[in-house]
Design a protein around this nucleic acid. Structure first.
Lengths: 163, 163
DNA sequence: GTATCTGCAAACCCTTTGCAATAAG
DNA sequence: CTTATTGCAAAGGGTTTGCAGATAC
């Protein structure tokens, strides 16, 4: 169980996509605004992340970049906090011992369903959760900054094949 | 930030507590039922865990045991899965890179508030969550096995001292 | 030109494991 | 006695870091 889902989350590329161009420009502006340098490596990493539509870990990002430009893992690890600060990337804490990430799309907060058999992640959003977060924080005299809701179990596919 | 909370979660001991004795006995029975041996080390670890009222990690457990009997970390790591199997201990996945554990008290499911400044964990339970879990799983054609809800932010104490 | 960034390899931290000595049954 | 368990120290993964050379500005 828990072998990596075969669907590779990095797309081959539509580098001419105007949306991508716009987001890359905004990332470059972000870098300049922080007096960070706009390097080939940072651009490659950002592009790979922006073209991504799923969840991934550092290894997968590294492999995806290998085919493109070639960026060391050290640079990936050093760039990730910048991408998070830039609002492009979010850390996803899954219960398997190492970090996962996902591209941030707009402001929508979503939660995850994790299949304990194939490891795939599905997303959903529940409008009640932010409300719940606020209510509980108030009750407990806490200033909340965020929440996480995860459900694990068996996805439809694994349910069928598991017996 | 994130220095360890000073409240040490292991109590000095009330080894004569009849509840503790009963739970230790049941742990010993569990060991025998699995043809595992009842060793001094396993008893020490189980006792420390049973006397615990909060969340802890392996290091904290190791330090707590140092003063008592002295058990190697290897043995702690090897005993933890047994304690989990025995239903005494549960793994808690916090977003700080390593494993935490908590003693299991009965069947009550609870969630965590985590202070991002001092690292302390507070508990709460919301009856809505299991309902939500079921509802979402149904909607997504998923067989749910469990959920996790965590809120992070600043606890009352850190809110006051942080400014 | 100069300071930042990169790749490499070593260091780190938490966790797991091989092995010889020890102890439970 | 026999086999599981222990402690130690070494090995393993994922992540971070020091440093010399490369590169953005």
């Amino acid at each position: 169980m828990a072998e990596k889902a075969s669907v590779f989350p990095f797309q081959k590329a539509s580098k001419n996509d105007p949306d991508l161009q716009r987001e890359m420009d905004s990332f470059r502006s972000f870098l300049r605004s922080k007096t960070h340098r706009v390097t080939r490596e940072r651009e490659s990493i950002a592009e790979a992340v922006l073209l991504n539509r799923g969840h991934f870990d550092v290894d997968e990002l590294f492999l995806a970049l290998k085919g493109r430009v070639g960026v060391s893992k050290a640079s990936i690890y050093r760039t990730i906090p910048i991408l998070i600060e830039a609002g492009i990337l979010a850390a996803v804490y899954l219960e398997d011992g190492h970090m996962h990430y996902e591209r941030v799309f707009g402001r929508d907060h979503h939660s995850h369903l994790r299949c304990t058999s194939c490891g795939r992640i599905f997303e959903f959003s529940v409008p009640e959760l932010p409300v719940l977060e606020k209510r509980i924080a108030e009750q407990q005299d806490f200033k909340s900054e965020g929440h996480k809701f995860e459900i694990w179990g068996l996805c439809a596919k694994c349910l069928r094949s598991d017996r």
